[in-house]
Write a protein that binds this DNA or RNA. Sequence first.
DNA 1: GGGATTGTTTAAAC
DNA 2: CGTTTAAACAATCC
Length: 267
Amino acid sequence: MPELPEVQTVVTDLKLKILNQEIVNINVFCSKIFNLEQDVILNQKILNVSRRGKYIILELSNGFLVIHLRMTGRLFAINKNIKNLDNQRKHLHVIFELSDQFLLFQDQRKFGTIQFYQDLNFLDQKLGPEPLLEDFTVQYLTKICTSSKQIKALLLDQAKIAGLGNIYVDEVLWQIGVHPQMLACDLSYDKLSLMHQAIQAILRQAIDLQGTTFLSYVFDGTQKGNYLEHLKVFNRTKSACFRCGTPIIKIKVAQRGTHLCPVCQKL
DNA sequence: GGGATTGTTTAAAC
DNA sequence: CGTTTAAACAATCC
């Protein structure tokens, strides 16, 4: 559920709160999620908080703590008092005690991951370009769209573009009037150019609105994103298409629940 | 209690 | 062998 805009929102929030603090203690309640040797990161200072694709990166002086929220993970800082902590016990799996905050990792489904790396080479090896940076060009999009994959499957592929997920892919394809099962190689240059613009515009607006709170995503422990009310197709099954009034339908594409307008998005 | 939910990895198929 | 599809995986909610 947390995709690029949601992860970016978490990172922006954390950056304000935990920069330059030291990890003074760690409590682990779920060894499946956190099975690191604690000594490696204990007493290390958090030098930076950043994002690559959907990965959150805490830069320490001796390496990087890399966190993925998957579906229902939450990462946020709270002031150091027990009352705050008690309010957050539900699905709480790791407590990082920092110099003057608690950094908490909650996860209802326990699919999230926390790992330590000496360097971040593996991320660049497995992830495509950031869709909001310079190397994501129309030319690049054209290149990867020589593929015969369905366009939705391709846009979800993190090795091609880093950070898009189910929500924003559905939104992008509705915006430009392309059916999610259309083969990437069949798209016209005009559509590819529109797709490039739509990807950036939708991601930017979603970041501005601090993401989409659909199921469980929050940042800062309780704060919801406001992009939900701007969604055009995702989670709007049977509601009227904002463009033509036809009821939005939900089908399965690339093994994912997929929302579309059957009139605006034809195969 | 079966099905839907997610992003990612791994395995199988093409 | 590269590309594409499918299944598996985790846990929980309805």
